[in-house]
């Protein structure tokens, strides 16, 4: 078991024949991802990486039975690509593209919800179910199979934390990079619900950052509904107010969205909150051993 994607997921890549799409599709194929085809408008009928190319997602779904899509379409067209996937029956849409206008993400997300699909991202590293399938851009070799679920707003920090978890002797069930933009398709709570029901996952690492209050909502959810141990780290404890720290959503506005506020809320919810990002791996191990 795992969440969202597994070895049986049939993946198509939107923006398949582009530079990014090609490079990362190759990486995914090497990891073992079942990529059944790709979509590039105007290149339908061609074969790329030994896989068929389609003009539309609808056609790709009809011909291949795909249920997951990985999007590398440039930012000006990415919201449209998300909506095309949602209206074509794709269940899990992973959008790697960064820099999509906020207004378009806002609209695309509502559209995805209407079609009862799941959108991960945008501007995220994607999803990986260790040793089964990689629907994203993370370095696959770090992720060894194990009992720890990982949810993170940040890309390289996800790799850092997964690496720590693996080095501690444990491993990852599924890791999901949800992105650090102001509006993201799937939040901590949505994924915690899935991890709660996933028998393979025995503990969860939650990596948040300054800005917004998704971590506080997650804390409220965990307090009442989540039975598995959670270790959390919030990046940006030393970030100054009013300065955007890279991610569009990583900004402390007024007095809200601070790391200390989020850390306190998670602690109150029974989460083991660490203030050093270097001890996440060992902390999960301790929790699972007890």
């Amino acid at each position: 078991m795992s969440i969202l994607v597994n070895k049986d997921s049939k993946v198509i890549v939107q923006g398949f024949t582009g530079k990014e799409g090609t490079f990362h599709s190759e990486q995914c194929l090497t990891y073992g991802t079942n990529i059944v085809g790709g979509v590039t408008p105007g290149k339908g009928g061609q074969v790329h990486l030994d896989r068929p190319v389609f003009n539309t997602v609808k056609e790709a779904v009809k011909e291949t039975g795909a249920n997951v899509s990985l999007i590398f379409v440039p930012s000006a067209f990415a919201a449209d690509a998300i909506m095309e996937a949602a209206s074509s029956g794709i269940e899990v849409i992973v959008c790697i593209t960064e820099g999509i206008p906020t207004r378009e993400v806002m609209i695309a997300k509502k559209y995805v919800q209407k079609h009862q699909a799941t959108l991960i991202g945008p501007n995220c590293p994607g999803i990986i179910t260790a040793e089964e399938t990689k629907v994203g851009i993370m370095p696959g070799f770090i992720f060894k199979k194990g009992p720890v679920g990982l949810i993170s707003k940040s890309g390289t920090l996800t790799y850092e934390m997964a690496n720590q978890v693996v080095k501690s002797g444990l491993g990852i069930s599924t890791a999901v990079g949800i992105g650090g933009d102001q509006i993201i398709g799937t939040t901590f709570i949505d994924l915690l619900k899935l991890f709660e029901n996933d028998q393979e996952t025995k503990a969860v690492v939650l990596i948040g950052e300054i800005g917004g209050d998704l971590e506080i909502q997650a804390a409220e959810y965990i307090a009442d509904n989540f039975s598995k141990p959670v270790v959390a780290f919030i990046a940006g404890q030393t970030a100054p107010k009013g300065k955007r720290m890279g991610h569009a959503g990583a900004i402390i506005a007024g007095s809200s969205g601070t790391a200390s506020e989020k850390m306190a809320a998670l602690s109150r919810a029974g989460v083991k909150v660490v203030s050093s990002p270097a001890i996440v791996g060992e902390t999960v191990l301790q929790l699972l051993e007890n």
Binding site: K153, T156, L157, A235, G236, M245, H247
Partner: peptide, 12 residues
């Protein structure tokens, strides 16, 4: 490399 890791580096 990466915003989240950059913030975490400041933190540590």
């Amino acid at each position: 490399n990466g915003a989240g890791l950059a913030m975490s580096t400041m933190d540590i």
